[in-house]
């Protein structure tokens, strides 16, 4: 039951983008086309899950063990940054096709606050390893859901007649606000 609550909570109720405001930069930046949104979702899911597992292990077996929890921010960001590099190198060798698809999004992920945010939240919520992993996957699904819906809306918006001053980013934010309003309907589910 715990797992169901974590999954529903992370995808719908506390959606990482629309309720927690993490990962807004890619949400606005790469949501012009559904195709790129799907690519970004894949890359984020990949990195988020691996990063959460690695940072969980580091927190438990290095930071807590030696009593240096205050180094959390520095350690986590360095781990994530090097992890992204590593994933990029491995992907290039192992699966060039996947690298082609995700390639341009990978460097962007280092500064995606959702990845660091989920790692810190998983530690802060005192999840064990399995719960942290489930939480990371569910958060990534929530991120993908919001991003793909939003990119679909933005593709439609290209055809709409929008007032001059609101074209581009401003109208995107207003639409994101309405989408967030829709997601507020899930409050109370978990």
């Amino acid at each position: 039951m715990d797992y169901v609550i974590i999954i529903i909570g992370a995808i719908f109720v506390n959606n990482v983008v629309l309720a927690k405001f993490l990962g807004i930069c890619p949400f606005i930046g790469v949501s012009k086309k559904v195709e790129t949104a799907i690519g970004m979702t894949g890359a984020v899911t990949f990195v988020m899950v691996i990063a959460t597992i690695v940072t969980y292990l580091i927190q438990k077996y290095v930071l807590v063990k030696f009593g240096i929890e205050y180094m959390q921010t520095i350690t986590f960001i360095l781990v994530i940054a090097s992890l992204v590099q590593l994933v990029e190198i491995i992907l290039k060798k192992v699966s060039p096709a996947l690298f082609q698809a995700l390639g341009i999004f990978l460097p962007l992920i280092t500064t995606n606050c959702a990845v660091l945010g989920v790692a810190i939240l998983a530690v802060g919520n005192k999840y064990d390893l399995l719960k942290s992993t489930v939480f990371a996957i569910a958060t990534a699904v929530g991120f993908g859901l919001a991003l793909i819906i939003f990119s679909g809306l933005r593709e439609q918006m290209d055809l709409a007649n929008i007032p001059k001053g609101m074209k581009g980013v401003p109208i995107a934010f207003v639409v994101a606000g309405i989408l967030a309003l829709a997601f507020m309907g899930f409050t109370g589910l978990a």
Partner: peptide, 17 residues
């Protein structure tokens, strides 16, 4: 709550632009 943040920021960006 969350929706207001997006909507207000959208209008502020429009004015700045």
């Amino acid at each position: 709550l969350a929706p207001g943040a997006f909507i207000v920021l959208g209008y502020l960006i429009a004015i700045t632009q």
